[in-house]
Design a protein around this nucleic acid. Structure first.
Length: 510
RNA sequence: GGUCCGUUCGUCUAGCCAGGUCAGGACGCCAGGUUUUCAUCCUGGUAACACGGGUUCGAAUCCCGUACGGACUACCA
């Protein structure tokens, strides 16, 4: 392997939206590339036309963009090794598959699906330990190793459908050197004669992957652990092509697991658990079913990638908040764990909160303003900014500003009966009338003045602080929750405050 | 079934490679404090080395076995 330049690829197949596990694979590839001044390449593995889903490719690109993962080369940006969509590289794979046949590392097979089914049934009946197409069974099947040259030629010329299978060597030990798992040794007698080239003229993943990684000079293959079992085949393919010395390094990442129960996270997990598994909202083009996304739920992309990075990786320090640049700086393959991890929605919210409170009030105000506009509420940006400043500690998402600040946009129409019961006393109306007078005289009408004046009044008349202030809050907000009372008053302004107290005096009846 | 991979608090994990820590942190949860309220915040608490054997003065750490979990076992990727 020549270490001239680090070049990694993210190679999803466009069979639907990318979920958080897939995006994490992309992120780790990106971090590794950038850490080593390398290239991040996006290749689309669309060799299975049956599973192709329209919109999926755009979704992948949009997701990477949202996460601020920049593509150095590949789909959308081009590069030296175009095309980057495998369906547009069919002829390349055919050529290499034929080369393998010529070198006797692969062979033509003419078996129909029914033939294969029969073989499996037969093997099962014989209580064979496996039902594989391999060195033991290939002799009794219809392929260029069992048939005469003449017959093979005839079948090929008559246009009979065929596949090309890898001729798996017998009883050979293959060593995969995995950067995360160490040495993994497999005996070829456990492996089967995998189809490399399908009868529809498309390669399978195994062939396309090896050919492209080699042609595109990929230095490190960082992918999910589900690929580990087929890596020995890939190693054998590199050998068969004579590319062994340029073989990339492999690193198989632990899987992302279902948050509940068992197994790896799947696209079907959708919104089943009450939180998204997709970065962006996805609408199934056929069923029109809507799956929510982290973006639409209100996650900041910086928080989202931070969460993703900590699924299976950690810096070894106690720092948990990392910007993309800090992640790049700290990233290393060695610090990726070996076991699968579950996504924790509670911790994800905490992460978003951390990013939210770090944002400037101006930025939050603009985000909140667009939500308000959707709801038909038109408010002054500066007013919104002050609200954000006052409530940002209390929310995890920008959308939650609504719940925390509805009373800034409309006077309460209902009053929490529990608070009325607990706080509304016989003298309350008189006290509130006094407070109206006091507030009327407070100039300027700000936190300092109103607080001092109201509290002086309470002390002078030997009233209960909690009693008075809660009931005052009730008239302004409708409940006993919310930010500091005098801050609310200052933002609302004198007129609105007095109007609301007067309304409270009329509407609250014990 | 077979092959391969894995297993530290409920969750994410540090510690393991180069044996000696009261097994550390974060989220969650619980309690207390601050606050006019709720939330935030602060303090404290809860809770884990899958099991069994070895090696060793000493094992979460090294070795073996078992259990459990997972992935793969398609003309899907």
């Amino acid at each position: 392997m020549d270490y001239g330049k680090v070049r990694v690829r993210f190679a999803p197949s466009p069979t639907g939206p990318l979920h958080i596990g897939g995006l994490r694979t992309a992120l780790f590839n990106y971090l590794f590339a950038k850490k080593n001044n390398g290239d991040f390449i996006l290749r689309i593995e669309d060799t299975d036309q049956a599973r192709y889903v329209p919109g999926a490719e755009e979704y992948i690109i949009e997701s990477l963009k949202w996460c601020n993962i920049k593509i150095d080369e590949g789909i959308t940006v081009g590069g030296l090794y175009e095309p980057y969509r495998q369906s547009e590289r069919k002829d390349i794979y055919r050529k290499y598959a034929k080369q393998l046949v010529e070198n006797c590392d692969a062979y033509y097979a003419f078996d129909t699906p029914d033939d294969l089914e029969q073989m499996r049934i037969r093997l099962k009946a014989e209580k064979s330990s496996t039902q594989q197409y391999n060195s033991i069974t290939r002799g009794s099947m219809k392929n260029s190793l069992s048939l005469t040259n003449k017959e093979v030629k005839q079948r090929l010329e008559s246009g009979e459908p065929y596949v090309i299978r890898f001729k798996m060597p017998e009883n050979e030990e293959v060593t995969v050197n995995d950067l995360i798992r160490g040495k993994v040794i497999v005996n070829t007698s456990e492996l089967d004669d995998k189809v490399l080239f399908k009868s529809d003229g498309m390669p399978t993943y195994h062939l396309a992957n090896i050919v492209d990684d080699h042609l595109m000079k990929i230095s490190h293959v960082i992918r999910g652990e589900e690929w580990l079992p087929s890596t020995p085949l890939h190693v054998l393919l590199y050998k068969a092509f004579g590319w062994e010395s340029e073989m990339p390094e492999f690193a198989h990442m632990p899987l992302t697991l279902k948050p509940d129960g068992k197994g790896k996270l799947s696209k079907r997990d959708g919104d089943r658990l009450g939180f998204p598994v997709f970065p962006l909202q996805w609408i199934n083009p056929v069923t029109k079913e809507v799956f929510s996304g982290f973006r639409e739920t209100g996650y900041f992309p910086e928080a989202f990638i931070n969460i993703l990075a900590f699924l299976g990786w950690n810096p070894g320090t106690e720092q948990e908040i990392f910007s993309l640049n800090e992640l790049i700086k700290s990233f290393s393959l060695e610090r990726i764990g070996k076991s699968g991890s579950r996504f924790d929605p509670e911790k994800a919210k905490w992460y978003n909160h951390q990013y939210l409170i770090k944002k400037s009030d101006d930025e939050l105000a603009e985000l909140f303003q667009s939500i308000l506009k959707e709801k038909g509420i038109d408010a002054d940006l500066n007013y919104i900014k002050n609200i954000c400043a006052l409530t940002k500690e209390r929310v995890n998402f920008v959308s939650e500003f609504c719940d925390q600040s509805y009373f800034f946009f409309e006077a309460p129409t209902e009053y929490d009966p529990k608070v009325i019961k607990k706080r509304w006393k016989e003298n309350t109306p008189d006290v509130l009338k006094d407070i109206i007078d006091i507030l009327n005289k407070s100039e300027p009408f700000n936190v300092e003045n109103t607080e001092k004046n109201v509290k002086d009044y309470i002390l002078k008349n030997e009233l209960n602080m909690g009693q008075v202030l809660n009931v005052l809050r009730l008239t302004l907000v409708g409940s006993a929750k919310g930010p500091a009372l005098f801050n609310i008053m200052e933002l609302l302004g004198k007129n609105e405050v007095i109007t609301r107290i007067e309304a409270g005096l009329v509407n609250i009846i014990k």
